[in-house]
Design a protein around this nucleic acid. Structure first.
Lengths: 252, 252
DNA sequence: CGGACATTTGACAAGCTTCAAGAGAAGTGG
DNA sequence: CCACTTCTCTTGAAGCTTGTCAAATGTCCG
């Protein structure tokens, strides 16, 4: 089996030409606000796979929008046990809780090569003051991300191993689909089984056996760095998954 | 053992006389903003213990601040398994995600009798427009609550039963302490073992056995509706608990 | 007193973790 | 180009944590 070379990510273009805004997944933004967002953006940044974007112990207060690639938020216990809180996909805002929340620290790590839009740390208050609508949007995004964590908490707290895996596969597939990153029933799937285990609160070995079982049941296939869902109906039933009607999301 | 009668909660007074603002746990609010908050508040409301404040399946878009009593956010699977996402204590804002987040639904139920300040549903946008600082505060609160859920996800995903119980006891005790609801080393503790089990992702029976064990080890005591921590050092060590330096929180 | 509900305990079963080790694929350097 | 290392995936076996079932005790309330 040949695995395709990782394709280098592109640096984000000017906001007016943003690829993400063309997907239809995000709310349209008017001229004046768009101009402000562009001015609010300090610079763009690229980081290789595996790099730590925000250190768990020493937050730097930066604010990003993930433009391309995957990342994840995580927390660790002092003996090294790690829990992934949620995955970050293109369009997600990074570093918000850190600016606000007290001490509740978490790290952020890139799964793939990523490209980011970096926003002015100090400018956030000005954003709220000059464009209350954008402040409203940011609250929207914060509440939405909390909803993701809620869902993950329900999963680790009350679903068994097979249900957890099914849930994760459906959830990620649907999110990627909205971003138009699904092609012919499959999506790029850069995470490994350790990531899945750390997301679902399972051991690596049990995660492997559970994945294997679902694969043998013909529910999915992961190979060559891509995920293909072969029986979404069965996966949804197993996971007790219901997707909300796709609704447009703000994008900073 | 006699358990004291539940004391009927009082209806919230005008914001200027708010008991919570006198605890020192919340950020001070200037005159003009305080007046707006008061005008933004539609009415006050009291609900008995056990009542559902927000239905999981049919959100009503209302926005509250919990003034007195305990409540919790939860999600359930279609077969009835329930996960408590976090507890709501006096000063917490209720119903924010619901207004913003898409479909990620959760219910809210009162643990004790509660009293609430009800805010105008439609007025939220006006709040952002006229008082960006309050909009900023609301984002702060959203990010903070996400931090609580993050912590709970780490707990259910990566801590064992004893660690989970120790974490929950420490966490609730510290939150109540900040609200000046701790007296002589103990706090009112209205939740039962089923609540604890549903919070920690454990079965009722195993929760009971774990509580029993920690009690026999002399770490805590729950009786007469009160929780007393007898060895906070040991509980913190067991739970790998670190509390952030107490920082003032916005209050709407 | 009788009924509803929360707590407690024991026995057993099952799910998940840990330990150990092998196979496959990718990257490195001589 | 090949030996060597590293990383990920895979599998089996054994043991421990946690869940399930069942039933007793205790407490509150009408």
């Amino acid at each position: 089996m040949r695995i395709p070379q990782p394709i280098a990510v592109a640096s984000p273009p000017p906001c007016a030409a943003c690829r993400l805004r063309k997907t239809g997944a995000f709310t349209a933004v008017a001229g004046e606000e768009l101009a402000f967002i562009e001015s609010f953006r300090r610079n763009t940044l690229m980081r290789p796979a595996g790099s730590v974007l925000i250190h768990e112990q020493k937050p730097n207060g930066k604010l990003f929008t993930l433009y391309e690639g995957w990342a994840f938020r995580y927390k660790t216990l002092s003996d090294g046990r790690r829990q992934i809180l949620n995955f970050l996909l293109p369009g997600d805002l990074i570093g918000l809780q850190q600016k606000f929340s007290d001490g509740a620290m978490h790290g952020i790590e890139a799964v793939t090569d990523v490209s980011l839009c970096v926003f002015s740390h100090e400018g956030l208050w000005e954003l709220f003051r000059r464009f209350p609508s954008l402040g409203y949007d940011i609250t929207w995004l914060a509440a939405r991300e909390e909803g993701l964590v809620d869902e993950n908490l329900l999963t680790t707290g009350r679903r068994n191993a097979a249900e957890r895996v099914a849930m994760l596969l459906m959830h990620l597939y649907r999110r990627l689909e909205r971003l138009r990153l699904a092609h012919e029933g499959s999506v790029a799937f850069p995470i490994n089984q350790q990531h899945i285990a750390d997301t679902l609160g399972l051991s690596l070995v049990h995660t492997n056996k559970t994945l294997r079982r679902l694969h043998q049941m013909g529910l999915h296939d992961i190979s060559n760095g891509r995920l293909r869902l072969l029986n979404t109906r069965a996966l949804e039933r197993l996971a007790d998954y219901y997707d909300a009607p796709p609704r447009k999301v703000p994008l900073l």
